[in-house]
Amino acid sequence: MLRIITWNIQWGLGIDGRVDLERLIAEARGIADFDVLCLQEVSDNFDTLKNNDGSNQFAALAALLPGYTAVEGVALDIPDEAGGRRRFGNMILSRLPVTQVLRYTLPWEAAPTRNMPRLVLEATVETGSGPLRIMTTHLEYSSDKLRRAQVEGIREAHRTAHERVITLREDGAGTYVRHPVTSSAVLTGDFNMRHEDGAKKRLSDPFENGAPALVDAWQALNGEKAHPWSFCIYEQQHGEPHCCDFMFVTEDLVPRLRSMTYDQRSQASDHQPVLIELDL
């Protein structure tokens, strides 16, 4: 059984106003003995964020999970006043062997809203059933135009991954060493849009090159039953409670889906953690 948790951790800022990464990891472990943890809103040197001490959270989270491979995905990389760098982005921690890691910078269209660059972080892990690509992302909050462009960027990353499966490249030495490729994937993250959003539905459209479609795992397991709330449950600063945290699996993995759970008890972030279990 493969267990994956995705969580927008808001740099560890809980509803109580306390930033506590140890609490986050303890709560994630309480949800499941996870194999892969996908995180959004991880920071480094960002003491300008609410109650953040500016520490390197990428390193801190890696230290809290010593048996896991820690993969960083920095979307925002800007200078601070002292000549250092402030970094903000996503992270994947896997206790399964990690092979190829890719970082896709998503399209950053212009909009008059408050917005920032975004990416998709991808790690290919070795499972008992073969390689699996695990992707995590965090799409723009303020602009539908930007999100739609970012959705096309995600689809392009998945399309090209499938192309590399059906068009096997020549092997080589050094930087040209070939690693396992696969069209099978799990896509997780905070998509900053609701289920009925057209851009969210666009993610599951078919591909002309035959790449397996990205299927909403909750819908695959529960049909038209509404997604549980994953945001604004305990704090309504950004609106009424709703779901914007989703997990997709490629259609070949749908028969392997066993369960999906939205943990609505946690108050360690303004988002709720989400667990998926697959027979892999």
Rank of each mutant, 00 (worst) to 15 (best):
T124N: 01
A211K: 11
R18I: 12
L275N: 07
V274N: 02
T99M: 13
Q267C: 06
N90Q: 08
V74L: 00
T127W: 05
A217C: 06
A70T: 01
A63N: 01
Q219S: 10
I134P: 02
E235M: 15
D16R: 03
G128A: 09
N56D: 09
E277V: 03
Q237S: 11
Q57Y: 06
R258K: 12
L2T: 07
G128R: 10
R95I: 03
G223Q: 12
M116P: 09
M193Q: 15
N115Y: 13
H158S: 02
N222A: 08
V181G: 07
R95G: 04
H138T: 00
A157G: 03
D35V: 00
S43I: 08
L253W: 13
I154D: 04
V186P: 00
N51F: 06
L37F: 05
R85A: 09
A185H: 09
D216Q: 08
D197A: 12
R256E: 14
W229P: 10
M247E: 06
D263M: 12
M1V: 14
D252Q: 10
V177R: 12
L2A: 02
A161G: 05
R118S: 00
T250F: 03
H242S: 11
A220H: 04
Y104A: 12
L278C: 09
G128L: 02
L37Q: 03
Q40R: 01
S269Q: 04
R133A: 12
N115T: 15
T160Q: 12
A110L: 14
D205N: 12
L24W: 13
R256Y: 14
P117C: 07
G83P: 05
R164A: 06
G189Q: 07
L65I: 09
P206F: 07
L102A: 11
S184H: 14
I25Q: 06
L21Y: 00
Y176L: 15
S259Q: 11
L76C: 00
C244G: 08
T175I: 15
D205L: 13
I134K: 06
V254I: 11
I5F: 01
D20V: 10
R86M: 03
T250E: 03
Q57S: 03
R148P: 04
S129V: 10
G130K: 10
F88V: 00
G67V: 00
A185Q: 05
N222D: 08
T160D: 05
A70H: 08
T69P: 02
F248D: 02
V74G: 02
Y104T: 15
D144F: 15
D44R: 13
Q219E: 11
I134V: 06
M260G: 00
I31Q: 06
W229Y: 15
H158K: 08
L203C: 08
L257P: 01
E81S: 11
W218L: 02
Y262C: 06
T136D: 02
D263F: 14
D33L: 01
E251W: 13
L64C: 01
M1E: 12
R29Y: 12
I134Y: 04
R159N: 00
D33N: 07
L121H: 02
D190H: 03
S94Q: 02
R103A: 09
E72V: 09
H242F: 12
W11V: 09
E27Q: 10
E152C: 01
Y234S: 08
L221A: 07
R155Q: 07
A111P: 11
T182Y: 01
V177W: 11
F248K: 05
V151F: 12
P180D: 08
N52H: 14
R147Y: 03
